[in-house]
């Protein structure tokens, strides 16, 4: 058992929640959610993101913006598990009279902004970061972007702005799963050298393995003490669909929930992983 085993276990339980939500709904972006599970677990369970589920509007909370709004199932699962809203809400994902659907909705407790149309989260985050500086407020702003999202010009408009404004309270995490909706990013429109691009726009850049907790914590540690007057970009190399072997790295699994036999296989795949781990106390007992 290593230091991060409880977080690793939590990540798998959250994957299972997401999978059940999406199977139950017959829709939802499973693979986009699975590439960023460890990143969200580190933020919400690893003491990185200052938040208070009992007071979602707490003025000095850190802001977390999920700019790749299609990965909403994982954020909803996390927020629910943290106690922002009742577990019953997850069961109504994408259903009649439900509280939320495929893309992220700002009126859900714990969600800062509506996303789903890509390329805007970083700009809103930069606006918040600037306001925090003007208001002398100490919180940080985290924005999680997809790498495919980095095809949007608005991302680079903002990257230039944030670099120029030296917004060192802004952290962009790029979920580098190497896939957009229909193809690999490098086949579609090449993003590499991605690190050099962010650096050229005036950002401090760290490249990590986005599924490795030691890597994630190393990259996210000491953020409040950073002396560099630059916003920080973390390029988190990940695997789209991580955890379900037959869905990993497959463009055709974008935006799809497995059904029937494949759903059973996917759940079995996760069950195997979870069984080999120590059963955690924080199992959220969500039965889809």
């Amino acid at each position: 058992m290593n230091t991060f085993s409880h977080l690793e276990h939590k990540a798998q339980l959250l994957r299972r929640t997401v999978l059940r939500m999406c199977i139950g709904a017959g829709t939802g972006h499973v693979t986009s959610s699975f590439s960023c599970v460890e990143l969200l677990v580190a933020l919400y369970y690893g003491g990185i993101l200052r938040h208070d589920p009992k007071n979602p509007g707490w003025e000095n909370r850190d802001r977390f913006i999920l700019s790749k709004g299609q990965a909403s199932p994982i954020l909803y699962a996390v927020l629910c598990d943290r106690g922002f809203f009742p577990k019953t809400w997850l069961k109504t994902f994408c259903k009649k009279n439900g509280r939320f659907g495929v893309h992220l909705q700002h009126d859900v407790p714990g969600v800062e902004v509506t996303t789903g149309s890509l390329g805007y989260g970083l700009g809103i985050g930069a606006g918040m970061a600037l306001a925090a500086r003007l208001n002398r407020q100490p919180f940080l702003i985290f924005v999680l972007l997809g790498d495919g999202e980095c095809h949007e010009g608005s991302v680079w408009e903002t990257a230039m702005f944030a670099g120029h404004q030296e917004l060192n309270n802004l952290v962009a995490i790029v979920d580098r799963n190497w896939l957009c909706a229909t193809d690999f990013t490098e086949n579609c429109v090449r993003l590499n050298p991605l690190e050099r691009k962010w650096r050229a726009f005036g950002w401090d850049v760290r490249s990590i393995d986005g599924h490795s907790f030691p890597h994630i914590f190393k990259a996210l540690s000491g953020l409040r003490l950073r002396e560099r007057n630059q916003p920080l970009a973390i390029i988190a190399n990940t695997v789209k669909g991580k955890g379900i072997d037959f869905m990993e790295n497959q463009p055709l699994w974008h935006g799809i929930a497995p059904q029937g036999k494949e759903a059973r296989e996917a759940l079995a795949c996760l069950k195997k992983i979870i069984r080999t781990e120590k059963k955690g106390e924080n199992d959220i007992n969500y039965n889809a």
């Binding site: 970083l122 809103i124 230039m160």
Partner: peptide
């Protein structure tokens, strides 16, 4: 914000959400 109208809108949104 420079000649960057989308960023004008998103920055404005972030600022407005911050009071």
């Amino acid at each position: 914000v420079g000649i960057a109208e989308q960023t004008m809108v998103t920055i404005a949104t972030g600022l407005a959400l911050s009071g």
